[in-house]
Amino acid sequence: MTYILTVDDSRIMRKIMSGAIEALGFQVLEAGDGVECLAQVEAHIEEVCLVLMDWNMPNMDGLTALKRLKASEMTNTIPVMMVTTEGERGKMVEAIRAGAANYLAKPFAEEDLMTKMVECLQDRLNLV
């Protein structure tokens, strides 16, 4: 089973992203903050193929969670795409430098979300 993990403190956003994930034929995992994200990745480390990460969340923000994932040899190959209201160019650069594979600013159309997810998953899809 292959999962895409959606990390957002808004249940609505997680539901919206879940619809797009399922439309691509993947299973959904959810987390409400960075701490839950790391726990979900650890629990499903062989099965998570992409993480969709919000930036501003309680307990642990998305940038910190991204850095933690990229700092570990166990998780640094999992692509992370930021999906956030943070639209400043400086924030995008910061996330890409921290290892984000892609960046999508809210608001977004579902087609844009799916296109960006496919871009992140290209290597994996080519292998299938």
Partner: peptide, 24 residues
């Protein structure tokens, strides 16, 4: 619950745009 969460996300996204504009 969904209504509250959804309206919170809408105001969050609109405010995010304002923040980006003011910051830049």
């Amino acid at each position: 619950e969904d209504m509250c969460d959804g309206i919170g996300e809408l105001v969050n996204i609109v405010s995010g745009r304002a923040k980006t504009s003011l910051s830049e």
